[in-house]
Design a protein around this nucleic acid. Structure first.
Length: 469
RNA sequence: GGGCCGUUAGCUCAACUGGCAGAGCAGGGCACUCUUAAUGCCAAGGCUGGAGGUUCGACUCCUCCACGGCCUACCA
């Protein structure tokens, strides 16, 4: 803390004023208008000060907006004006005054009275360039939010998107539920879990990697349309698309299928684009993404044909294509690892406008219902926007015997996940789960696309960083 | 985890090939009652991320460490 700021703090105390105030009745700054001639009461942070001897203009900011306020000595009187001189950029004050317009026509509040509500002891980042240092923006997000309106906009948009999702789903009869975040057996996705320990029960628990298996138990229980906007945790690398904890929407609709999920996804996201952003196109990085319906649908299998692979199960032709494209296959041996690599490098980057990729191999989808007349494939789609995966959905496998076989087959494949079959889930299926469509949407990534952010850290308030020092 | 890059005043950035570390904003003082990146004048602000090394001399070159960014890997 700087000595000068400490001295200011002491000055306020010496005036018998508590520099950290109490409740103050105020209205949002964003609601002020030039038509108002009555007195107003507002509060917020002083963002700029332009002093002119016996008068001064300041900008006062609250979450709803910013307004210019005008301090005049002949209005405030000697004593109040002296207090004003001891205010700093960054202080939080309450103001009572009247609206007027300046000679340049700017809406301004003439300060009749003000009160200090919170004294700043630090120094705000620079008013013109703002806070650029990414590390500081993430570690001290509060400064980012105070100073960078782009940061404010992103997180306001995030809230609006999530609110829209809730009202959209509620309108379709979905109910929001909460399922455990501490799982005795991690399941519902292929990912490395975080491990924690419960002392009283003396048992290890896993932070959830997906809520899927619990939500489907609720379908067994008769809940027909459920969703959870869930935080899930995966103990893997950090990148512009990956944070160890991330937010997903998962929903399940009894008696539906993956096609229903496809329609729902398209309606939901086009609705967000229209209602929240009032657009049907969004600029992401340097390209326009067109969200207009109908969205493109392609078969996963056709992607390979387009790359010149006639039979994607032929590992040699996959390897050959990878080598022709000079893609390093280090550490990749299985057919599906190689296919995944090829897909990520050669297909994903081309899927800019929303595109459903449909019908996946059963080996990569242990919880999905098989394709009619082709048990080697499943009723599943992934949605890609802006070159990366946004959503994943399928017709849910509700046959307990088949599910058990799929789990057992999964155990045969190498995995870093603990190798335990969730027999409790199988048992639930034995009581009958209705056929259903299920959908997962990566909320952080969706927000990225819609707000033009290139890193997931830009849309998560406090992304995980190593502690400084 | 691997590769590359970055870290200089509270913030945003300079400093050529190794030769006294500089500016704007913020903060301090003075002047100024319609400014809006207010303005004018004055003063102050630094162990250049940390620890070693090379050198007469290091922000600059070398080694190690810390944190971050990008790419890559695992994944969503």
């Amino acid at each position: 803390m700087k000595n000068e700021k400490k001295e200011k703090l002491e000055w306020w105390k010496s005036q018998g004023i508590e520099p950290y105030g109490r409740r103050f009745n105020r209205e949002p700054i964003g609601g002020l208008s030039t038509e108002r001639k009555d007195s107003v009461s507002i509060a917020g942070r002083i963002m700029t000060v332009r002093r002119h001897g016996k008068a001064a203009f300041c900008d006062l900011m609250d979450w709803s907006g910013r307004v210019q306020i005008y301090f005049k000595k002949d209005i405030l009187g000697e004593e109040q004006f002296e207090k004003f001189k001891n205010l700093d950029v960054g202080d939080i004050i309450g103001v009572k005054g009247e609206i007027f317009t300046t000679h340049t026509g700017q809406l301004t509040v003439l300060v009749k009275d003000f009160i200090l509500l919170s004294k700043i002891l630090g120094t705000l980042p620079e008013k013109w360039h703002g806070l650029r240092d990414l590390e500081v923006r993430f570690r001290r997000r509060y400064l980012d939010l105070i100073v960078n309106s782009e940061a404010q906009n992103v997180f306001v948009a995030r809230v609006k998107i999530i609110n829209y999702i809730r009202s959209f789903l509620s309108g379709l009869g979905f109910i929001e539920v909460e399922t455990p975040m501490m799982h005795p057996i991690p399941g519902g996705a292929e990912a490395k879990p975080f491990i924690t320990h419960h002392n009283a029960l003396d048992m290890d628990l896993y932070l959830r990697i997906a809520p899927e298996l619990y939500l489907k138990r609720l379908l067994v229980g008769g809940m027909e349309k459920v969703y959870e906007i869930n935080r899930s945790f995966r103990n893997e690398g950090i990148s512009t698309l990956h944070n160890p904890e991330f937010t997903m929407l998962e929903l399940y609709s009894a008696y539906g299928d993956y096609k229903e999920m496809m329609d729902l996804t398209e309606n939901l996201i086009t609705g967000i684009v229209k209602q929240v952003f009032n657009e049907d196109k969004i600029k992401f990085q340097d390209t326009d993404i067109n969200f207009q319906s109908p969205w493109k649908k392609i078969y996963w299998e056709d992607c390979w044909k387009n790359l010149g692979i006639d039979n994607w199960r032929d590992i040699n032709s996959v390897k050959q294509t990878l080598s022709e494209k000079h893609i390093d296959t280090e550490g990749k041996e299985t057919l599906f690892d190689l296919l995944d690599l090829l897909f990520k490098r050669c297909i994903e980057p081309t899927l800019i406008n929303p595109t459903f990729v449909v019908k996946f191999p059963v080996e990569t989808s242990p919880l999905a219902k098989s394709w009619p007349d082709d048990t080697s494939m499943v009723e599943r789609f992934e949605l890609f926007i802006g070159g990366f995966e946004i959503a994943n959905a399928y017709s849910e496998l509700n046959d307990p015997v088949e599910q058990k076989i799929r789990f057992e087959e999964e155990l045969q494949r190498p995995s870093e996940r603990p190798k335990v079959i969730d027999d409790d889930y199988i048992e639930a299926l034995e009581y009958g789960m209705p056929p259903a469509g299920g959908l997962g949407i990566g909320i952080d990534r969706l927000v990225m696309i819609l707000t033009g952010c290139s890193s997931i850290r830009d849309v998560i308030l406090f992304p995980l960083l190593r502690p400084k020092q």
